[in-house]
């Protein structure tokens, strides 16, 4: 408790000094101030990832809703997220699928612990400088975003088995800001891939830690060695790759059928079938929305009507199995 209080005190001192230098106005300052009486030390827990056969891997979570950094993270995320979403959603594409075009699915395995805090702050700053017309985002200067980011990143602590830990890379994945920061970092990192792909009119898409790209410029070996050079240049981003003429990507199975794009729904073979996503709160409402969006997704994903019908029946059966009427 003493350590936690000291940490809160040092955070508030930094905020106060920002206010005194007129970097923060009084309202924002009082909104970000950390209230030691309600702050709780976050704890670490794990959930099993059962997607690999014969192996349990672990997904770490940090319960962070009452942490000292919560308010700053909420503020920064609401500031950065709309801008980041706008910038990173740019897609370069010309439809030039050939019969020999290979598909590649990449999964970044350390998405929430990409780099040390200093480098993360530098990357966010570089990203903002490059994409903002002025040095401000919604009246907040880049320097000030860096200051707040510094307070946030260096004060994320948690406990696990009677010891208090601090994060040296990344931030708690339970905070939306963690996603936003990783998104910025990977956006900057992926530029070196895009540079090459754009030369050859390839397709590139990314959702969080998962990337899909096409490769018409050579064989599997050449794509492999290209990705190896990316790995060597930026060892901080760790990833697994899958290269073939058909790959699963997110929930889709994407195939190159002699130059024609074919896709259908892909379901992970180890995930139990006919189950609804786990929801808390208004489960009935959420599951009803889920059915609607799952049907829309099926329309978008399925190249053939037969595949769509199979998926529709599967989704309807899932609802019935779980006690819902259609």
């Amino acid at each position: 408790q003493t350590e936690l209080n000291q940490m809160v005190e040092s955070m508030n001192l930094l905020l106060e000094s920002l206010k005194n230098h007129e970097s923060l106005n009084v309202d924002l300052y009082s909104g970000l101030l950390v209230d030691a009486s309600i702050v709780k030390l976050p704890y670490l827990y794990f959930l099993p990832d059962v997607s690999k056969e014969n192996e349990i891997s672990l997904v770490p979570y940090i319960a962070s809703q009452h942490s000292a950094t919560w308010r700053i993270s909420k503020y920064l995320n609401e500031l950065l997220r709309p801008f980041v979403d706008k910038i990173v959603s740019t897609v370069f594409t010309k439809r030039e699928l050939q019969s020999t075009t290979l598909f590649c699915a990449i999964k970044i395995t350390n998405y929430h612990k990409l780099d040390i805090h200093k480098n993360m702050i530098d990357t966010v700053s570089y990203f903002l400088e490059e994409n903002l017309i002025t040095n401000k985002l919604e009246q907040v200067t880049i320097q000030n975003i860096k200051n707040l980011l510094h307070i946030f990143l260096y004060n994320n602590v948690f406990y696990y088995k009677d010891q208090i830990y601090t994060l040296t890379k990344g931030s708690p994945n339970t905070m939306p800001l963690a996603d936003t920061l990783s998104n910025i970092y990977v956006f900057v990192w992926q530029k070196q891939i895009l540079k090459q792909l754009q030369l050859n009119n390839e397709f590139f898409g990314r959702y969080k830690d998962q990337i899909f790209l096409t490769w018409s410029n050579g064989n599997e070996e050449q794509l492999g060695s290209f990705l190896q050079t990316i790995r060597d240049k930026s060892p901080n981003v760790q990833f697994q790759k899958l290269i073939a003429s058909s790959v699963p990507f997110l929930n889709a199975f994407v195939q190159n059928q002699n130059g024609d794009l074919f896709s259908r729904i892909h379901r992970h073979p180890l995930i139990q079938g006919y189950s609804l996503p786990y929801e808390v709160g208004h489960a009935k409402l959420v599951h009803s929305d889920w059915l609607r969006s799952a049907l829309i997704r099926a329309v978008c994903y399925c190249s053939s009507v037969e595949d769509f019908n199979l998926e529709r029946i599967y989704l309807e059966l899932t609802c019935l199995t779980n006690g819902y009427s259609l």
Binding site: E3, L44, F46, P48, I56, S57, L58, P60, K113, V157, Y160, K161, Q163, I164, Y165, T166, L167, T168, K169, G170
Partner: peptide, 25 residues
């Protein structure tokens, strides 16, 4: 979960071997 003991051990290994965490106290 299958084997809870294995899960516990893996969790401990995860924390002690991860380069993202450092003991503060």
């Amino acid at each position: 979960l299958g084997n809870c003991q294995e899960f516990e051990t893996k969790a401990y290994d995860y924390v002690s071997k991860s380069d993202a965490y450092k003991v503060l106290l």
